[in-house]
Design a protein around this nucleic acid. Sequence first.
DNA 1: CCTCTTTCTTAAGATACCTTAAGATTCATC
DNA 2: GATGAATCTTAAGGTATCTTAAGAAAGAGG
Lengths: 192, 192
Amino acid sequence: MDAVDQLIAHLKESIPVTSEEAIGLRKHCSVVELRRRDVLLFAGETSKHMRFISKGCLRAYYMDSEAKEHIVQFGIEGWWINDLYSYLSQTPAKQFIQALEPSIVVQIQIEHLNQLFHEIPSLERFFRLKFEKAYVAFQERTMDAMSKTAEQRYLEFRSKYRNIEQRVPQYMVASYLGITPEFLSSLRKNIP
Amino acid sequence: MDAVDQLIAHLKESIPVTSEEAIGLRKHCSVVELRRRDVLLFAGETSKHMRFISKGCLRAYYMDSEAKEHIVQFGIEGWWINDLYSYLSQTPAKQFIQALEPSIVVQIQIEHLNQLFHEIPSLERFFRLKFEKAYVAFQERTMDAMSKTAEQRYLEFRSKYRNIEQRVPQYMVASYLGITPEFLSSLRKNIP
DNA sequence: CCTCTTTCTTAAGATACCTTAAGATTCATC
DNA sequence: GATGAATCTTAAGGTATCTTAAGAAAGAGG
């Protein structure tokens, strides 16, 4: 099963996809192989693709005014990763997207995707739902960031994303949680 | 100029609206008057309307597991307010929406709005853009909550929303910023 | 206007989280 | 397998923010 097959299988979990539609889709997909540390999208560029992770692990992060990195999102096999705002509004990205492992990503250009929305109407619904989920995830994260302790946030991260915790460096988990690596280390010491 | 006129004027700032379209729109709008403290949407209910504030001031907030309130959003004249996730996914709201002053809100039922999208195509674009903005606002707020001090967040709130700061109680600003009212009070003492 | 409720301030002691620095461990690559 | 780079831990001292409690000020509604 190649990378695009995986994308199609992923779509089929939520919407029906006929084999003709799959063929149409395939035409508009490009597959990118990334080495560890390769950057797929630089801040300042405009995000021109929707990106599906077929293999590997990536992060989206931005740099604050003091050049500190803050991780906005991780992504692994079967997830989408993007600077969604840049993509949707076609304005320069604030985030970088970088591979943390050797990875394979399927990309669909924005023009092609918009065209596909006409050929495969349920695809538009698929992305609307994705977007709604992304929205609510951010809303929850905002509220958590403001009302929960770092320990609570870490425990929730761990139970939600065990798999991710095991494959990214701990200091990146700290960055995702908004705390220092030292503090995360000390939290971990005091947890079973 | 009545409440619906205000809504139409608001739309005209972003998209063209013909007078026939305005008439069609008007049919599907209902106007709600609220007293101070009236609740427009309860957590647990499903949000069935898009809501435009024609007059007054409201807040969207949720209650955490310890019964503490956390303000997600304020809204004043010319803003939209909703539990957007509940509205979009038609699932029970986690947030309350409550008037902080006597207010007038224009509501459009979801079925009517979806129908209006066919009659006034640019309306769909209007809401897509609104939604993108809401998304990026949350993203920024998440990152701010995790990387900036309460003082920085307060100063930014103050310069962005001077008008709101002046009409809502200070402890609600604190709740919006994710800090205690006592701490906000002490921050303010040390700022010009 | 008066009164009751809501909101704001102050202060002291507690806790969460950060900074710095150094050493220990693990990992990647030759 | 050796070596240098990347990552993790520990610890001490500092700062940001919270909790509690009480009184002061402001505002709402009669």
